[in-house]
Nucleic acid binder design. Structure first.
Length: 1074
RNA sequence: GGACCGUUAGCUCAGUUGGCUAGAGCGCUCGCCUCACACGCGAGAGGUCACUGGUUCAAGUCCAGUACGGUCCA
């Protein structure tokens, strides 16, 4: 060891400011990554067996900027991606965005409407151009946000669900499913949104509690012998009634058998049918339905899903009395319109409701009206009540075993309930039983959803989306030609039949079905050109355009609808990797083989059904059973400070850029990771930043009529009462607009101080190291911490032992998605161990100790590496500085050099053989340090003042073993021997420690005997209570016989040491009193 | 109506198979501008683990129920 003068804080050190300023480093660090191209994924080639790791981003909707929920989602993905990249895996994080059909169309339409432009007036092409602009704008915002957060996606591969690659996948998937009989068109009741005029899938319908009414309407029997009373919440639908139903068990049923009623207004004679579905009247029932029921149910198959089922059972006619806008209409299947009924045609459903109730009331046919609270489906987009409406829609037969059964069989059998009888058995086939949920309770959510699944309505009456690749022709059977006629001759109405036509010879798929007994509808599905070229077809003269032109010439018209957004999202893990024809997009060659199945899908739980299920079905169907992902990790949902879901309409969503602005990206990330446990929800109280003064304040809250607690639209500056600002809630509701004088207040939250302070701590620990390591000092040194030659200090051995321990905990935590354990372990190791203990302990020795400088450099290097996945910016910024002061090698600690932290290898640390003893010794020493510090603090001893320790032999050994650490950390000057019988030094405070007495002198000039005695008395009482507790436990025979032997032994040991402590304290008190 | 989650310090949250004196961060109190960091250092106070009952030698932890809050599904 050569001695050196303290390192001169050279230019490098001087250049590092005292506090970490994220805004100055983040952009520059991002550039370093981009320039180096470290995020680019390289698929495996040849017989390369390097492990792979891949994630496809849940593509954010291009409707709006990302909020904290996205920040959480993407941070967790980035942690895993960066970690596996450091492990040396071939790593792909696929970025992209979702066109979000209905959601985007709605926001664009709203924006246009505010400018006075209507979608229908501007036309399809112009509207799509506007929507494309919107998409471009928000896609750019989203990518900017992800970059600002440090997401290490392979940006060169950024996809969009409507780009060329995804279009090909959608077209090919649709064609394949169509060809395989898994896509069909049918007249069904759909969830109709009369405002956006589109069908919605079941998942897009939100149930809301409505305080409405139950109307009791009298329907006269057609033989004039009386009437029946039906109860309904939707009187307007009575125009389409085609029966009245009664439960066969109802005592009145026999008398009414084979009778009919004359439907008022319409004068339609409709039968009384008997059906088990009907709830019998029971005024005393606790069940709302029975309580309000009359026992008679009006049956409207065209306007109620349950009535539809009843209609099927009793072969009732289906009469649709509404148009697509929800108004009463006689043009959509209602033919027996009486002149009386004509009065109601054209009314909106709300107007019709009042008018019909009034009509019944005027004629004495309204028996009663009662208040009634019930759930009503609402459109998740327009928020108006859904109208069950009969229309032609396209469906995917997800109830088919090839989809539903396959999705169920994918589940890891150890965490899902038994497969339903109709779902077959798991086999050795790829993917079966291989999909695992974390936390595992979500496996049941997934399972339960598939148990009750219905066919998936995929057509949407929108413009923004993937156009349905089907051309349709409807005509009388006799006009359709002999082949079609023959093909459908024996088929039932609505039963699809595949046709072998010239379109099929040219590569299309061709279906026909009778719509009625006399009309046939043909549908021709055209695959994308790239698939067409590869087909083995008998007529290969036509390319895609020619084929479509020919079909259209023959009178076919392309379906105007687009596909449900989730159809393209469901293909995301496939389409982004170039499926089905990667060779057409050369950059995607090899991706599927290397990276699908992806390693994990990270998402919030609300999307398990919508998305996870469909990706599983599609990926397995199109890739021979292969799963889209092995694991599904469901993370928490971030709520606001009042336990409310963050939503656009409440304006309580927080833009991650606001947090990055006040705290930095690393602080954002670290805090989010630190709060990720396996619970469902986390609360995030949010404050505002006054745009006038820059100070943080808690906004004034108001309660909305719906009971939500939100920031008042206008807020007053806390210290400038004349100035005001608007809240995001105010802007979201349109109550206020931000102006120059009254600007929008940005959000912040003191929750993120945790991460900001931590990043700053790392920054300063590094600054310390840079000022104390002399890089020219023995650069080729080799330090062996396991060597007993005294070349490494106790502190050095201990910190390496702790590094190894922490690494083990972190690796296990990340393997099990325990993100908070990862963050907490980092925090403890870096702050408590490295900074509070290690750095403090080495201060007196490091300047002259080249070995210690090498250890410190290595520890800092390792810290940057293990912290990098969660705090990539500060670690990358410090990386070159730490690399510059690395000297020598530490035996057993592998930290290979790297240009960038982002491409560095994860540390490998071999555990020291003596680690257990070293850590034990440290813990004992640390307890002694703590006891001395407490004593010092209670006497107000200045930090610089040294105290003298008088110790018995056992403590002398501990002090020697810990190599000066106790003296440094506790501010101890001299240590002198002291045995039980020795004369007591003057003004020395007794300190019972490990059952022996230690004396501390030099604290004060004069001892306050009363205070000393009181302190000891308190300690004695505490120890005595503990001793009694242990004694009682051991006196209990049940404990001694039943508890695990090691637990009992531990209790005995603890009793022993506590007794010794008690004795030592009592002896000290006696000595003090004499 | 069904399912799931939560209720632990003033606040936000940890607490793996039941077993040391129930932990952290913030806030609070006291003392420190101790030559990396006041976004800091040292010390401390603060909890009937929502409630009721049960299982057990032993319950924050397991079981049953209640209350309140939240989410998803119908």
């Amino acid at each position: 060891m050569t001695s050196t003068t303290p390192a001169d804080p050279g230019p490098l050190t001087a250049a590092i400011p005292k506090a970490y300023d994220p805004s100055e480093t983040e952009e520059e660090v991002t550039k370093r990554w981009t320039t180096a191209g470290v995020f680019a994924a390289e698929p495996r080639t040849g017989d390369d067996q390097t492990p792979t790791y891949s994630i496809v981003i849940p593509p954010p909707n291009v409707t709006a900027a990302l909020h904290l929920g996205h920040a959480l989602n993407n941070t967790l993905q980035d942690v895993l991606i960066r970690y596996h990249r450091m492990l040396g895996h071939r790593t792909l994080w696929m970025p992209g965005t979702d066109h979000a059909g209905i959601a985007t169309q709605t926001v664009v339409e709203k924006r246009l409407l505010s400018e006075g432009v209507k979608r229908l007036e501007m036309g399809r092409d112009a509207f799509l151009a506007k929507t494309q602009d919107w998409k471009d704008e928000y896609e750019a915002v989203i990518i900017e946000q992800l970059l600002a957060m440090g997401a290490s996606c392979d940006w060169e591969r950024t996809r969009f669900t409507m780009d060329e690659m995804c279009v090909t996948a959608v077209r090919h998937a649709f064609y394949t499913l169509f060809q395989d009989g898994l896509i069909y068109r049918g007249k069904r009741l759909v969830n109709w949104d009369p405002v956006t005029r589109t069908a919605l899938s079941d998942d897009e319908v939100e149930m809301e509690e409505i305080e409405g009414h139950m109307w009791y309407l009298r329907y006269p029997l057609s033989d004039g012998s009386g009437h029946v009373t039906v109860a309904t919440t939707r009187p307007e639908t009575m125009l389409g009634d085609t029966a009245v139903a009664i439960n066969p068990a109802d005592p009145r049923a026999r008398a009414l058998r084979n009778k009919s009623v004359l439907l008022p207004i319409v004068d339609r004679v409709i039968p009384i049918v008997e059906d088990d579905y009907v709830v019998m009247a029971d005024p005393d029932s606790s069940d709302g339905k029975a309580k309000y029921a009359t026992g008679f149910l009006k049956v409207t198959p065209a306007h109620d899903p349950n009535d539809w089922e009843i209609g099927l059972r009793h072969e009732l006619p289906v009469i649709n009395v509404m148009g697509p806008d929800g108004s009463i209409s006689s043009e959509h299947g209602w033919e027996d319109t009486s002149s009386e009924a004509q009065e109601f045609v054209g009314l909106s459903r709300e107007e019709a409701r009042s008018a019909i109730v009034a009509w019944f009331d005027e004629r004495g046919l309204l028996e009663e009206v009662r208040a009634y609270t019930h759930s009503v489906g609402h459109s998740y987009r327009s928020h108006v009540p859904i109208e069950p409406w009969l229309s032609d829609q396209w469906y995917v037969a997800v109830t088919d075993d090839r989809l539903r059964g396959s999705a169920l069989r994918a589940q890891n059998p150890t965490q899902s309930p038994a497969l339903p009888d109709d779902a077959g058995h798991r086999t050795d086939a790829p993917g079966d039983g291989a999909m695992t949920f974390h936390p595992d309770r979500y496996a049941r959510t997934y399972h339960a959803w598939h148990a009750g699944i219905r066919d998936w309505c995929i057509s949407r009456q929108l413009w923004w989306g993937h156009r349905i690749p089907v051309w349709v022709r409807l005509q009388p059977i006799e006009d359709a030609g002999p082949e079609i006629g023959a093909a459908v001759a024996d088929a039932a109405v609505d039963e699809p039949v595949f046709i072998e036509s010239r379109w099929v010879a040219a590569g299309a798929a061709h279906l026909a079905r009778k719509v009625t007994e006399t009309e046939v509808e043909e549908a021709v599905c055209v695959p994308p050109g790239s698939s067409l070229r590869r087909l083995d077809r008998t007529d290969s003269t036509m390319d895609e355009a020619a084929l479509i032109a020919a079909i259209e010439t023959d009178g076919f018209v392309q379906d105007p609808d687009v596909l449900d957004t989730w159809f393209s999202s469901g293909l995301w893990p496939l389409s982004t990797m170039g499926w089905p024809w990667p060779e057409d997009f050369p950059e995607t060659v090899g991706l599927l083989e290397s990276f699908n199945p992806t390693s994990v899908l990270m998402t919030a739980r609300e999307i398990i059904t919508l998305w996870v299920s469909r990706m599983t079905m599609f990926n397995r169907y199109f890739r021979q059973g292969q799963l889209p992902f092995d694991d599904v990790f469901i993370h928490a949902m971030i709520q606001d400070g009042h336990g409310q879901k963050m939503s656009k309409s409440l304006g309580n969503g927080v833009d991650p850029r606001d947090i990055i602005h006040t705290h930095g990206a690393d602080a954002l990330r670290f805090t989010l990771v630190q709060m990720t446990t396996d619970t469902q929800d986390v609360r995030m109280p949010v404050d505002l930043i006054c745009p006038h003064t820059g100070e943080m304040f808690t906004p004034e809250f108001i309660t909305t009529s719906a009971g939500h607690v939100v920031a008042a639209p206008t807020q007053t500056s806390p210290n400038e009462p004349t100035k005001s600002m608007v809240s995001a809630y105010g802007v979201a509701t349109g109550a206020v607009t931000a102006t120059t004088d009254v600007p929008l207040a940005r959000n912040t939250s003191s929750k993120f101080d945790l991460g900001r302070n931590f990043a700053n701590k790392v920054w300063n620990a590094t600054r310390f190291a840079l000022s104390r390591i002399d890089p020219g000092h023995a650069p080729s040194i080799t330090v062996d911490p396991s060597s007993a030659d005294g070349s490494t200090t106790f502190a050095d051995q201990w910190i390496i032992a702790r590094l190894a321990q922490s690494l083990g905990v972190i690796e296990e935590a990340l393997a099990n998605y325990q993100f908070n354990v990862y963050a907490d372990t980092l925090y403890d190791f870096i702050w408590r161990d490295v900074c509070d203990r290690y750095l403090e302990a080495v201060k007196p020795t490091i300047d002259g100790n080249a070995d210690q400088q090498a250890v410190l450099g290595a520890v800092l290097d390792a810290v940057l590496r293990i912290l990098h996945p969660v705090c990539p910016f500060v670690t990358e910024a410090l990386w070159p500085h730490v690399a510059a002061v690395r000297t020598g090698e530490i035996v057993g600690v592998a930290l290979p050099p790297s240009e960038l932290a982002a491409s560095a290898r994860w540390p490998v640390v071999e555990p020291l053989a003596s680690a257990g003893l070293v850590v034990d010794t440290f813990d004992r020493a640390d307890r002694l340090v703590g006891a001395i510090r407490t004593l010092r603090s209670s006497r107000n001893v200045k930090p610089k003042q040294r105290v003298t320790l008088h110790v018995p032999a056992s403590v002398r050994e501990l002090i020697a073993a810990s190599d000066g650490m106790i003296e440094t950390l506790a501010g101890v000057g001299d240590v002198v021997d002291f045995a039980a019988g020795d004369d007591r030094p003057p003004a020395a405070s007794p300190l019972p420690f490990e059952g022996v007495e230690v004396l501390v002198s030099g604290l004060v000039d004069e001892l306050d005997f009363d205070a000393e005695r009181a302190r000891l008395q308190k300690l004695i009482e505490a120890k005595a209570t503990q001793v009694r507790g242990f004694e009682q436990r051991l006196a209990n025979p049940g404990y001694v016989t039943n508890a695990k032997p090691e637990v009992v032994a531990e209790t005995r040991e603890r009793l022993e040491t506590t007794r010794n402590d008690l004795r030592a304290a009592e002896a000290a008190l006696t000595a003090l009193t004499n």
